[in-house]
Design a protein around this nucleic acid. Structure first.
Lengths: 225, 225
DNA sequence: TGGTGAAAGCTGTCCGACCGCATTCGCCTC
DNA sequence: GAGGCGAATGCGGTCGGACAGCTTTCACCA
C-alpha cells in the first residue's frame, strides 16, 4: 500500500484525526492500544508516532492518564496558543530572512568549485531523504549550512549553528506535517531548493537571494497557513 | 539511581560511547541487541534512543546493516568554535551589515516609547564615554543591543549576544584607533549614531537601515583604511 | 450527601518472535 | 589460483503479549 515506514502513516493518521475530528488543545486522544487497533498496526508503532508528535510539540503523554493534544498542527495561530512560542517562530524567520538571503547572495558570488559540489551533494541528500520518507529536517539544515559555508565568510557559520536548535524543531514539524499533505507539497519544497542552488551555480547573486527569500516565505506559509 | 526515563539514559550512554571510543562519521555502532545487553536494558528502549539520535542527525539506521555514526555529537553540542582569526572577525561585518540594518529597520517600525527611551539613554551614555577618556566600546555595544531589543523580536538578541565577543573586539579597536586621530573623527562617529537614533525616533525604517549601513561601512573603513 | 477505597484504564517498560534485507564467506566453476 | 555465485548469518523493522506503577473513575459505605 503506502510507501514509507509504518510510523509515518501513524503520524499522518493521528494528525488527520486531530484536524478532522476538531480536537482542541487539552483534548484527550484515544489510548495507544485503541489507536493501534483502529489503524491496524501494533502499539509499538503508535508509540513511535506519538513520541515524534510529542517531540514536535503537538501532543503530550501523561503517565497513567493518556495522550493529550497540546497544540493543533494546522491552527498554529489559535488563541489559546502560547504567543511566546509563536513570536519566537516568527522572529526566527525574520532573522533567517536577512541572514540566509545574504548568505545565498554571497555564496553565489564567491562559492568555489568544491563548495558548490558540497552544496549539490547536500541537495541530493535532501532530495533522497524527502522522497524516501526518511526524516529530512537534518538534511534540510545541512543544505542551508553548506550555503552559509560557501560564503567564504567564517562568521556566518557560528551564527547559523546558534540558530540551529530553534530552527530544527520547526523544520521537523514542517516536514512531518507536509508529509501528511499531498505529495506536490514535498515537490514544491524541493523545487524551491533547486532554484536556490541553480542560482548559486550560475553565480546569480540577486537570483539566489530572491530564491532564498521565496523559499523562506513559502516555508513560513507551510507552517502557519 | 539516575532519574528520568530509561531512554534518556540510553541516549546519553550512546553519545558517551561515540565520544569516548572516538568513533568517527561512518563508523558502525554495535547492534541494537548488543547495546541492550551492554546497558542492561531492553531493545525497545535502545531503539527509542536510536530513533532520537537519528532524528538529531547523529546516527543513521540502515536496514539489515546496522546503525552508523553520521556526525559526531560534539560538532553539534559544542556551541561554536572560537573565532580567533582576525580575518574571520572582519567577516562579522558582513553578518552585522544585514543583521543590524534589519534590526534598525524593525526598531524604527516597532519601537515602543520605553524602548526608545532606553535607546536614547544608551546614546547619551555613549556620548559621555566617547568624549571622556574612558573606554567606550561597551557603551557602543549597549546602544546596538538596545536597538536590537526594540525590534520586539526576541530572536535577534541571542544572535547579537553570540556575536558580542567578536564585535566588542572590533569596537574597542575602532574606538582606540579613532582616539589617535583628530577629534572630528570621534564627532563623526557620534553623528552616525545620532542619525540612526533619529531615524528610529521618527519611525523612518529605510532611513534607519541606511544610517546603520553607513555607520558600519564607516566603522569598517576606520578599522581598515 | 460526602468521602473513601477498590477497580479499571493508561503509559512506561520489557520480552520473545518473525520477516525481509545486507553483508559475508565458503563453495563451485573455470 | 582467481573470480563469481549462492547460502548462511546478522541486523533492523514490526508485531503481540505481559507486567508494573500511576491516574482516574465510580460504586459503596458512613
Amino acid at each position: 500500500m503506502s510507501e514509507g515506514r509504518v510510523a509515518d502513516r501513524a503520524y499522518a493518521a493521528i494528525v488527520r484525526m486531530i484536524t478532522d475530528e476538531k480536537l482542541s488543545a487539552g483534548d484527550r486522544l484515544p489510548s495507544e492500544a485503541r489507536l493501534a487497533a483502529t489503524f491496524g498496526m501494533s502499539r509499538t508503532i503508535v508509540r513511535e508516532a506519538l513520541a515524534r508528535l510529542a517531540s514536535d510539540g503537538i501532543t503530550e503523554a501523561r503517565l497513567g492518564a493518556g495522550s493529550y493534544v497540546k497544540r493543533r498542527p494546522s491552527e498554529r495561530l489559535g488563541t489559546h496558543l502560547p504567543m511566546d512560542e509563536m513570536a519566537t517562530t516568527i522572529g526566527t524567520y525574520e532573522v533567517r530572512f536577512v541572514l540566509e538571503a545574504e548568505a545565498a547572495r554571497l555564496a553565489a558570488l564567491r562559492r568555489s568549485g568544491p563548495q558548490l559540489e558540497a552544496i549539490e551533494r547536500a541537495l541530493e541528500q535532501l532530495r533522497a531523504a524527502l522522497f524516501s520518507h526518511a526524516p529530512a529536517h537534518d538534511e534540510d539544515w545541512q543544505l542551508h549550512r553548506a550555503i552559509a559555508e560557501a560564503t567564504g565568510n567564517a562568521a556566518f557559520l557560528p551564527v547559523f549553528d546558534h540558530l540551529r536548535d530553534s530552527v530544527v524543531h520547526i523544520l521537523r514539524a514542517g516536514v512531518d506535517i507536509s508529509r501528511s499533505r499531498p505529495p506536490q507539497v514535498i515537490a514544491a519544497m524541493m523545487e524551491e531548493h533547486d532554484a536556490i542552488v541553480d542560482a548559486i551555480r550560475v553565480r546569480d547573486a540577486d537570483g539566489a537571494a530572491l530564491a532564498m527569500r521565496w523559499h523562506l516565505s513559502q516555508g513560513r506559509k507551510r507552517l502557519m497557513p
